[in-house]
Design a protein around this nucleic acid. Structure first.
Length: 473
DNA sequence: TGAAATGTTGGGGCG
DNA sequence: ACGCCCCAACATTTC
């Protein structure tokens, strides 16, 4: 009699977690659950380094591991747990599929070149089902009417808006319970490491930050986002980087907030535009993966960058003698994050004032940033260098003194990250080399002794940069 | 999601 | 009343 036989096991699948460390609004998890029992898997991939900076991005790795521990706790609270394994994904997943009798494999699609190679290798071994979730709209769905990808932001943005807008009903709540994972299934411990102090790990923290942002700063975002010393940004970038918050959740929140406010150019609308910039650069990398190696603009691949290790080291260490550049670079080194306006200022200084290859700056940012994402980081650097899609023109050179006067008028950002300038009077703070020697001694900040002399004369280097771009074009 | 140089305009002080 | 100068504010151009 059939009743005497063992009940056939529920079909089982692997939920392969890569950069979607969340239970809320997770299409890959939902697809796995529709299939049957689910084994959540994270693979420590020694080759995930695909990139030269990966191994040195220790703060981002620590944030990832801490967030995985948090995810494991959330899974356990729902009757499941995280299974961690080390190795090449194709081999690890094949082994796990054999151990668990899984006949399904689900993951959120990642469009970076490394991820695509990795997933192609897995697909040669197992039927891998990729779902959306990294972006609101898949890069292949935001195309010109005549076909082909956009390379300018504004039309991309229009096409994005013309697609179906996500609504609250689209957001998949976190499952209250999850199928158990057999206690016999082995899991490795996660590497140690605490999340950076300014960025506590986990999905719940991402949610709290979103709520805090929606409760106030989002409405003043159009201006507030530019103030270096203010908490005017969402500070969600590391959470988007690892999918602790879905882009769709953020877009729904932005659309709701924008709808309530009367003006079209409101803070929420501006923030939504930033989310679309994120999707734009993800799409650019999807369609033009070579941007990680060279300039998007083929006419700007022959610029004679300077080889200037000492200048580069001064930039990295925040010792250029330009306070806002130094504050930015020290904020990065100390906290693993940099204000977006500061990223533009610091990047412009490296590329346009020091005439150092933007790829060196890109690599340094990837090593340091908790939120370091190849698409956004490359997009930002190519924009600044003027080599990218929809880029800043080559002659646009930020003046660090004007930028800091405009976006840190009280000097709070400068004094926080460059403490040796703390006693410098406001009037000289943004350009301390103009301080009369007597005042330098009075306030205990002698230029060249307590704070660096500017490593370049901006007025003089401008012509050099314009010439280099013209010759390299 | 510049900056700086140059040009234009218009108000106010002043003889 | 008028011309002249100064200069701030704004616009235009160039890199």
């Amino acid at each position: 009699m059939s009743s005497a036989r063992a009940k056939p096991a529920l079909p089982t699948s692997l939920w392969w977690i890569r950069r979607d460390l969340r239970l809320t609004d997770n299409p890959a998890l939902q697809a796995a659950l529709r299939h049957g029992a689910v084994v959540p898997v994270f693979i420590l991939d020694p080759a995930a380094s695909g990139s030269r900076y990966h191994a040195r991005a220790q703060r981002r790795q620590a944030f990832l591991y801490a967030s995985l521990r948090s995810l494991d706790a959330e899974l356990r609270a729902r009757g499941s747990r995280l299974v961690v394994r080390t190795g090449r994904p194709a081999e690890v997943l094949a082994q796990l599929a054999a151990e668990t009798q899984a006949n399904g494999l689900f993951a959120e699609e990642d469009h970076s070149p490394y991820a695509r190679r990795r997933d192609a290798a897995v697909q040669g071994v197992l039927p891998l089902t990729l779902t959306g979730g990294l972006t609101v709209h898949h890069p292949a769905n935001v195309q010109k009417a005549a076909g082909g990808p956009y390379t300018v932001f504004t039309p991309f943005s229009k096409a994005w808006h013309a697609l179906r807008r996500p609504t609250p009903a689209d957001l998949e709540p976190a499952p209250a319970r999850l199928p158990a994972v057999s206690p016999a299934l082995a899991s490795e411990p996660l590497p140690a490491g605490e999340a950076p102090a300014d960025f506590p790990a986990g999905e719940a923290e991402a949610r709290r930050r979103l709520e805090r942002f929606l409760a106030g700063p989002i409405h003043a975002y159009a201006e507030g986002r530019n103030q270096l010393a203010e908490a005017g940004t969402s500070s969600l970038s590391p959470y988007f980087r690892f999918g602790l918050l879905s882009a769709r959740t953020a877009a729904v929140a932005a659309l709701e907030a924008a709808g309530r406010a009367p003006q079209p150019a409101n803070g929420a609308g501006t923030w939504l535009t930033e989310l679309i910039w994120r999707e734009f650069y993800i799409a650019v990398l999807y369609h033009f993966p070579h941007v990680l190696q060279t300039a998007f603009n083929p006419n700007l691949r022959a610029i004679a960058w300077r080889t200037a290790p000492e200048d580069f080291a001064a930039w990295q260490a925040g010792r250029t003698g330009y306070p806002v550049v130094d504050a930015a670079m020290r904020q990065l080194a100390q906290t693993g994050w940099m204000h977006n306006r500061a990223r533009m200022i610091a990047a412009s200084f490296l590329v346009k004032d020091l005439l150092i290859d933007w790829r060196l700056g890109e690599q340094w940012f990837m090593e340091q940033l908790v939120d370091g994402d190849p698409a956004a980081n490359n997009g930002g650097w190519q924009w600044t260098a003027g080599t990218g899609t929809d880029a800043a023109p080559y002659f646009r050179i930020f003046n660090p003194v004007l930028q800091s006067q405009k976006f840190d008028p009280a000097g709070r950002y400068l004094r926080r990250f460059v403490p040796e300038l703390a006693a410098v009077p406001d009037e000289y703070l943004h350009a301390p080399w103009k301080m009369p020697p007597l005042i330098q001694h009075q306030v205990g900040c002698v230029i060249g002794r307590d704070y660096p002399t500017p490593i370049v004369d901006r007025a003089a280097v401008k012509a050099r940069t314009l010439a280099a771009y013209k010759a390299g074009a």
